[in-house]
Design a protein around this nucleic acid. Structure first.
Length: 244
DNA sequence: AACTTTGTCAACCGCAAGTCC
DNA sequence: GGGACTTGCGGTTGACAAAGT
């Protein structure tokens, strides 16, 4: 009762930091009362662990850190604290956020579709609009299902093949339709081979993580994932399939 | 320019494990 | 042994900013 919630103010940060520097944090539950903070102990602990600790590393994750997260997640699953233990200065919360906002989508885009049952993750929302434009020409060949139906289709079905996703808005029917093209098998195998060999050539200005290979830079793509996204889309249309 | 949608990330919540008495 | 309390973890939420319409 009477405890504050929500974002911490600089003043609260200052109080917490100076208290811990002076007294340590023996008992988190008792700490806020002793320090004069209107927060629960849990909130104080979280703020210290995730933000105020002196050994916290700030700034974007490096490529090496991202690769480490991907590899460790492959081995450990969602054990964020265990993953964080291998990345000095990074917190489990931060790693969890990076995974959900960047790495998971990146991997899903490059994974074989049968490994995912959640079609909503196959296409980053941010790109839905341009994707919609690109896909209009294939519209006539597709059947239509609702988004929720698509999400519940079992792994046995290949969601990437001629499935359209109907979007719903405030219970109104079908405002727009997204069509996911059939992907040539060669797209996935080629991407995997390229990544394994760390190949750099004109066909692949970016590796599968979305980083520039430095050999070639196409100004059309300011983001390596745009390159892969376009390649992904084009590979579903044999008339525009790049030279695999 | 106004409104809507989407992405990001700090913070919260519930639960399980650990510790103390 | 077991109940009360504390700590730590992972999933989820919500505020805010940026991007899109």
């Amino acid at each position: 009762m009477g405890l504050k919630k929500g974002p911490w103010t600089p003043e609260e940060d200052q109080i917490l930091v100076s208290y811990i520097h002076k007294n340590g944090h023996g008992n988190w539950r008792a700490l806020p009362k002793q320090a004069g903070l209107l927060r629960c102990g849990k909130s104080c602990r979280l703020r210290w662990i995730n933000y105020l600790r002196p050994d916290i590393k700030r700034g974007n994750f490096t490529r090496e850190e991202e690769e480490t997260i991907i590899k460790l997640h492959e081995m450990l699953g969602n054990r964020w604290s265990a993953i964080a233990a291998k990345l000095p200065g990074r917190t489990d919360n931060e790693i969890k956020n990076v995974w959900h906002t960047h790495l998971k989508k990146r991997l899903l885009l490059l994974q074989k579709p049968t490994q995912s049952s959640d079609s909503s993750l196959l296409i980053p929302n941010k790109r839905a609009s341009s994707h919609q434009k690109i896909m209009k020409r294939t519209h006539s060949n597709s059947s239509t299902i609702t988004h929720s139906q698509a999400a519940s289709i079992e792994e046995s079905k290949n969601l990437m093949k001629n499935v359209s996703i109907k979007r719903e808005d405030n219970n109104t029917e079908c405002l727009e339709t997204l069509i996911v093209p059939e992907i040539e098998e060669s797209f996935w195998s080629e991407a995997a081979i390229m990544d394994e060999k760390n190949t750099t050539n004109e066909k692949y200005p970016f590796d599968s993580y979305g980083y520039s290979t430095n050999y070639y830079h196409d100004e059309e793509y300011d983001d390596g994932m745009d390159f892969w996204y376009d390649l992904f889309i084009r590979s579903g249309d044999s008339t525009e399939l790049p030279e695999f």
